[in-house]
């Protein structure tokens, strides 16, 4: 590990890279066709779900396969609310609150479990959410899904154009991930990581481990809920397919590939969605196959040589790796 406090990627300081990345992504609507722009919009939505999985999987070391549930809660909240209120910001806040609320209830039980039991319970939560979305026909439209109206900006302008929608989603995603970046470096974030590393010691030091983990779970629920509102802005449609296991699995995959960096998680999600949709469109029907191969390749790469390579390319992760063997690992 380098002694420099600046994160670097291929030798370039991270702030410069971030600035260049933001500028490049802001200019996408002028550079790419409408299909690519709408694909990028969806990629950002998936990236935000992945970031919520990152918070649980990496920060507090509790891997999850159920973030699609809170994504769904947020999306349906925004879509139903959109029938009366078109303000994107109101929908975003309402969806995040609904996601956090659902996570608060479910999380109070789930944070008492660890490892495999926690993982299986999150799968169960995701499945229950999907079935509920299919069955609550009056509210969710069942298998037919629920269409929504275009969201509007605070000034009242409706977001109809793909480029405008993309810029709105990009701005929201940047604001939310920026907020998380700050949160992860605050006392709260440090405590979360400390619990992941030394749960028993933190407990002995007087920290209420369950409450802290619950807070992390609720925050992750809020992030996934917010992503749900952005899905409505991007696609103006939500169906039980969006709440399916594959959404959670994709988020976990991106979170794992992204390792300890929120930025890398975002890029991993964009890359996975890109591979799935672009290559899947080139060879129709093969996207599950490609996605499956990406999963296997990612696991293999992390298992051995690929991991050392990644460590060399990413000179320094966003925060130091765990050095203590007693840290929780699934």
């Amino acid at each position: 590990m380098t002694s420099s406090s600046r994160a670097r990627f291929l030798g370039i300081p991270a702030p410069a890279l971030t600035a260049a990345g933001v500028a490049a992504s802001m200019s996408l609507p002028w550079l790419a066709d409408a299909y690519t722009v709408s694909l990028a919009s969806y990629g950002l939505v998936a990236a935000l779900v992945a970031v919520s999985a990152h918070l649980l999987t990496t920060t507090v070391a509790m891997p999850t396969l159920g973030q699609a549930a809170y994504f769904g809660v947020g999306a349906y909240t925004a879509a139903v609310l959109g029938q009366g209120v078109s303000s994107g910001l109101v929908q975003l806040i309402a969806a995040a609150t609904a996601g956090a609320g659902a996570a608060a209830v479910i999380g109070s039980a789930l944070v008492r479990t660890r490892g495999m039991v926690f993982l299986v319970l999150t799968i169960a939560v995701g499945e229950v959410a999907r079935v509920a979305a299919e069955q609550a026909v009056p509210l969710t439209g069942g298998g037919n899904g629920l269409a929504a109206v275009p969201v509007s900006l605070p000034g009242g302008a409706e977001l109809v154009h793909d480029g405008h929608v993309y810029l709105y989603i990009l701005t929201c995603t940047l604001a939310i991930t920026g907020g998380l970046h700050v949160l992860l470096r605050s006392r709260t974030g440090i405590t979360w990581r400390a619990i992941a590393d030394h749960e028993a010691r933190m407990q002995a030091n007087g920290f209420s481990v369950h409450t802290r983990l619950w807070t992390a779970y609720v925050t992750a629920g809020a992030l996934a809920g917010a992503a749900g509102a952005l899905l409505i802005a991007a696609r103006r449609f939500v169906s039980p397919t969006d709440v399916a296991f594959s959404t959670s699995a994709l988020a976990l995959l991106a979170a794992i590939i992204g390792a300890r960096s929120v930025t890398a998680t975002v890029f991993a999600a964009l890359l996975i969605v890109g591979v799935r949709d672009v290559a899947g469109a080139a060879l129709p029907g093969t996207s599950p196959l490609l996605l499956g191969l990406v999963f296997v390749a990612a696991a293999l790469a992390r298992g051995g040589r690929g991991r050392r390579l990644a460590a060399r390319v990413l000179r320094r992760p966003d925060y130091p790796p765990r050095s203590h063997p007693e840290g929780r690992q699934l």
């Binding site: 794992i256 599950p288 999963f295 990612a298 696991a299 293999l300 992390r302 298992g303 690992q329």
Partner: peptide
């Protein structure tokens, strides 16, 4: 395959991938 990925989390990823390929 699972011997090549010793950690549980990576095994979860690998087997999700195998399930996707198998279903396809």
């Amino acid at each position: 395959l699972l011997e090549a990925v010793p950690r549980h989390l990576d095994q979860a990823l690998a087997t999700i991938g195998v399930a996707l390929v198998g279903a396809y």
